[in-house]
Amino acid sequence: MAKRQYSFYPGCSSQKGASSSNYLISAQTMCEELDIQLNEIPDWNCCGASIGYAGGGELPRLTLSARNIALSEQHNPGQSIVATCAACWLSTREAAERLQHNPALAKDANTALAEAGLTLKNQTPIKHMVEVLIQDIGYDTIKTKVKRPLAGLKIAGYVGCQTNRPFGIAGESFENPQYLDRLIETLGADSIPQFEKKVQCCGGALAFSEPAKSQEMIKGILESAHDNGADLIVTPCPVCQMNAEVYQEQINATYGTNFKMPVVYYSTLMAIAFGRSAQDAALTGQVIPAEKLAAIAGK
């Protein structure tokens, strides 16, 4: 089968030795199995994330994304941009739309880009990897690739904020999106539809700057997953993954709780269900080991 081609925007946090490098590894494995070819945007820059607003005014921030889109249009013409990071997807799509609706800003962005010989046409669709899975590939095709169903696992689908709002996945509600649960079921595991914290904010960048406030919210997410009998949490967002996973010891120390809840990416789940090794699924990147998944991978 011919491979589907996408212009890939990996984002800073997925770089080698960065906090979601495990996401990139598992996403690449998942894409291999689904005949998706990711063509990295050459020399892409940071999108500015959500927190870039303090130093970056409107035009400088939009120009960051404009540079990436222009590079994509030049080097990977005709291909949709796909991002794995929720914040990268959001910033890029937001910038593209703002520049489409505001010709004066678009003109200024192009004047700035001309300094490096770049031009923005701004005709490129910008997708999150989850949209590619659900809209371009589809649950049925995904199901045909499952070699090791994740039977017996109970998984809380934690959608979080930015893969869900303000754009979200077409046809899904903001308050109770179903796609992650459906994906979990497609892989042969049990979802938890009554996981009431599925769209709760994890605190985003405030996990760094105001940890006490952020950890209070993370505690709520973990508690709900635990009380609903989850073996692990799955998420489509690198910020959610990191925040929900790595602060559990601190949360335990603060609240006298005893969380040891693995938090994995959907791509890790899929890589394992598709029959790939723990290494290829980046299970080795878990700070809190996902033992039940590792056991399935070891079969």
């Binding site: 940071c46 994330a49 870039g52 607003y53 130093g55 960048a205 700057s209």
Partner: peptide, 19 residues
């Protein structure tokens, strides 16, 4: 603290284009 962090983030990414 977030005001400071947000500015640090911007300065960091402006240096080399990536965080």
């Amino acid at each position: 603290p977030t005001a400071k962090f947000a500015q640090l983030f911007w300065n960091n990414l402006m240096k080399k284009g990536r965080v």
